[in-house]
Design a protein around this nucleic acid. Structure first.
Length: 642
DNA sequence: ATAGGGTTAG
């Protein structure tokens, strides 16, 4: 990247303009120094074609054209966008050689470029050398946002107070730089303070400030505040909508995302790839395949189909909605697959219990020359654990550190504990946790507790429970898990002890719910729910099914050593049963029925659906927080589950 | 000088 720099003749139409004049810089001069080269450069930078812009800059030098104050902002901007510090340093020397350095706009561009390239010392040097008069608002703004960009919030605030002390005018861009630094949870208070100051100074009428505040709230996890601000904004643009929609998506408020997306369709503002990305990830979490399909059609209609972000999101959505065939078709049709594409498809096969395919795909990915990252290892390890591929999982775990030099994090440990635990190797799992160099999180101990449930080990369960509860005292799931372990062992005293603990800590069980998507609408059921318009028919169908199941369970046809009277006692109207009854009433024969449950499917319903599946021509796909259960003709895909 | 983005276990 060595560009020969020679002193070219000045362009003909601004020969009146000498370097002496540059010292008394006036913004107007910029307009006079435009040339065909500069105009083209500006155009490329505006279209975000930064690499081409820099190529053009080099061509410009080679052909003997002198860069000027109209050249550098765009060259520097391209350099910053591509993060090429070496080129940036070179550009700085060109700035000095051409005598453009006193120009405060160029200085600002330099500061910004250095910050984007993480050369903050250099940025500070340019700033400090500006002298009192050269330090305009824009220079301060560039350095303030540069500090926050490099997560140096304290320096940003210090510079802000210096700015105010010296009486430099603060504008809305100054606020933007500061507000975007408040994205950590403990910075919420400062963020709210900045919100107040923005209102006081009247900057809140600036859309970009409001949008930035909105983003700050969602990044802090304060979705309610964000929504309040969103509703109060008299004017909203695409970024406002996107900030709110992806804010909901990132914080797991999938239903709110779909509601807002629907609301957005009533406005003049059209969704762009960022909007659709948030919507697709929410469809994936809700299992809302038909809305996902609509989004896919929209992507094609709007010509976004080559956007790799969207393609990956589609693969993820179809895989999580139970449509592996479609997910695979999209994956196969991609021209260029990134690690994220592979992660999505491997995870998809993993959660459907197809561990072998996941393994094959992982190896294929390596052969293609893709470098695996931490996330794809989470996918493959969990795929191995679901499929019972214990040795394969251990192999990958080893390779992760040894071959790919990746440090396992808590997520990987919880996969490994799950893997060893399911295989009954509880002691090894426990030892693995004890050998961790970082401190284990709740999920790691939780995985061990889950394994103790499968293998009925009270001793290790009590130890795991003690640890997990220290880390996540309000997570009800773990109390329920321990209580179930006691109850399996007929240890009533233990069950009561857990119940007392829960009462003391005022913990209530989350209500379980299940839902089915039908004709583009979500039909949600709680246990014993009577709010659905078809309630009467649903209950009639359910009674019919219950009788059928009881009969089947005692018939000689069902005799695979699985008969367990207990499983059919104390039945009750579970939410998944209502969803199944509703779906059977409304779905044509032969079609798949997809039920989504917010908690793990219980043993009783598992058996119930398995038996029902022998009598109908449907495949039932039940998705719970951990995986999919496919039921067809009395067979379930998850045989290791109970 | 500036606000919005995909994958991850239990």
């Amino acid at each position: 990247m060595t560009t020969q720099y020679s002193e070219p003749p000045p362009p003909p139409h601004h020969h009146h303009h000498h370097s002496k004049k540059l010292l008394h810089f006036q913004p107007k001069i910029i307009a006079h120094t435009s040339t065909p080269w500069n105009n083209r450069l500006r155009e490329l930078a505006k279209q975000c074609q930064f690499a081409q812009a820099l190529t053009l800059y080099r061509q410009m030098l080679r052909s003997g054209n002198c860069p000027n104050t109209f050249t550098f902002p765009f060259a520097l901007k391209s350099c910053a966008a591509l993060v090429i510090p070496l080129m940036g340093l070179q550009l700085h020397t060109h700035v000095v050689k051409t005598g453009c350095e006193p120009d405060p706009y160029i200085r600002t561009s330099l500061i910004s470029m250095y910050c984007k390239c993480s050369l903050i010392q250099n940025a500070r040097k340019v700033f400090d050398e500006s002298g009192q008069l050269g330090k305009l608002t824009i220079c301060y703004n560039a350095l303030i946002s540069g500090y926050t960009f490099n997560s140096k919030f304290v320096d940003a605030v210090l510079l802000f107070s210096q700015m105010r002390k010296e009486g430099v005018l603060v504008n809305s861009v100054t606020m933007l730089g500061l507000i975007s630094g408040c994205t950590l949870p403990n910075h919420l208070a400062i963020g709210m303070y900045l919100h107040c100051s923005s209102v006081k100074f009247g900057f809140d009428t600036d859309l970009s400030v409001s949008n930035c505040l909105l983003t700050m709230y969602v990044k802090c996890g304060e979705v309610a505040y964000a929504r309040e601000l969103f509703d109060a904004m008299p004017e909203k643009d695409l970024i406002t909508w996107n900030a709110m929609i992806s804010g909901y998506a990132q914080n797991g408020f999938a239903k709110h995302v779909l509601e807002l997306y629907h609301e957005m369709e009533l406005t003049e503002i059209h969704p762009d790839p960022v909007t659709l990305l948030g919507v697709l990830s929410s469809c994936a979490n809700l299992g809302a395949q038909s809305i996902g399909c609509q989004v896919e059609r929209r992507i094609e209609y709007r010509g976004f189909q080559s956007n790799p972000f969207l393609t990956n999101a589609l693969i993820n959505m179809y895989a999580r909605c139970g449509n592996l065939v479609k997910a695979r078709a999209i994956f196969d049709s991609m021209a260029e697959r990134s690690v994220i594409s592979w992660t999505a498809i491997i995870g998809g096969y993993g959660m459907h219990g197809h561990g072998e395919i996941a393994v094959q795909l992982f190896d294929k990915m390596i052969k293609t020359g893709i470098r695996p990252d931490e996330t794809v290892f989470v996918s493959i390890l969990s795929a191995c654990s679901h499929a019972g591929l214990t040795d394969k999982g251990l192999e990958y775990y080893e390779a992760m550190e040894m071959k790919y030099n990746l440090q396992p994090g808590p997520e990987h440990y919880s996969c490994m504990v799950d893997l060893l635990g399911r295989a009954g190797r509880l002691k090894e799992a426990k030892e693995l946790i004890e050998s961790m160099q970082g401190k284990p999180d709740g999920a790691v101990w939780g995985a061990l507790l889950g394994a103790c449930k499968i293998h009925k080990n009270i001793e290790i369960a009590e130890l795991a429970f003690e640890r997990v509860i220290e880390l996540e005292p309000t997570n009800i799931g773990y109390y329920v898990l321990l209580s179930n372990i006691y109850s399996d062992a007929q240890n009533l005293e233990g069950v009561l002890r857990v119940r007392v603990m829960m009462r003391e800590r005022k913990l209530r069980k989350d209500p379980g719910c299940s839902y089915v998507e039908y004709k583009g609408k979500v039909h949600l059921f709680f246990a014993g729910d009577i709010s659905h318009p078809q309630t009467k028919e649903i209950y009639r169908k359910l009674t019919e099914l219950e009788n059928l199941v009881k009969e089947l369970h005692t018939s000689p046809k069902f005799d695979q050593g699985e008969r367990n009277e207990e499983l059919l006692i104390g039945t009750g109207v579970h939410s998944e049963k209502l969803a199944v009854a509703f779906a059977l009433l409304n779905t044509r024969s032969g079609a798949d029925i997809i039920v989504i449950k917010n908690l793990r499917v219980c043993v009783h319903c598992h058996l119930f659906i398995k038996l029902v599946s022998t009598t109908v021509d449907h495949q039932f796909v039940v998705r719970d927080p951990t995986r999919f259960h496919h039921f067809r003709n009395g067979v379930c895909s998850c045989k290791d589950y109970w």
